[in-house]
Design a protein around this nucleic acid. Sequence first.
DNA 1: CCACGGATTGGCT
DNA 2: GCCAATCCGTGGA
Length: 204
Amino acid sequence: MTDYLSANKLKKSFYRKELLDVARNLLGKILVKVDGKNILSGKIVEVEAYHGDFDEAAHSYRGITKRTEIMFEAGGYIYVYFTYGAHHCCNVVTGKKGQGTAVLIRAVEPLSGIDTMIKNRFERKLRNKKEIFNLTSGPGKTCQAFEINKKHSGIDLTENKIFILDGEKIKSKDIGVSKRIGISRSVDLPWRFFIKNNPYLSHK
DNA sequence: CCACGGATTGGCT
DNA sequence: GCCAATCCGTGGA
């Protein structure tokens, strides 16, 4: 299993490219967290890009702080932050050292470890079939399902704890683009990307 | 030290 | 569709 995973794991070179290209290319890739003998995984179906230089909504916009310093590393690490007193959100650091660019993982489609995700999210069984679509259809939900929190911020995505596997190539015509959700500055940048019609999207 | 507001979610109208 | 919950990072005094 580990060999199979390693063979398909995205390398540092994948992440160290231009922000918006990495954001679009992450759609269809497989987010994996090794949780003991459990493998939690899901296909990335929705992302948003953030840029430290001119994007006022980015946490990196005001420069390096203790919280955001990992965003300024070269691509290939995860940046996890805590917000609204309740939720964690997981980002993939991209680009070159000093840029402060990252891609927020907003939603995934669960693939394996689904029983564990259900337990992490609801601490009970599903009440009905439709609830499966409430497992990972948002950035906070995805982190809760995968049990990803601030302790994981800074993890190297080429190691074996949390990483991303190559997946299907999503065609341009199947990628939707919109403004980003839930921000109050730089609101007009069309930097949210998603797989059209996927049932796990955070917004329709 | 203190005040502000947030890359969200879920419950209620 | 609207709004409260609930911590903490950040910035200004």
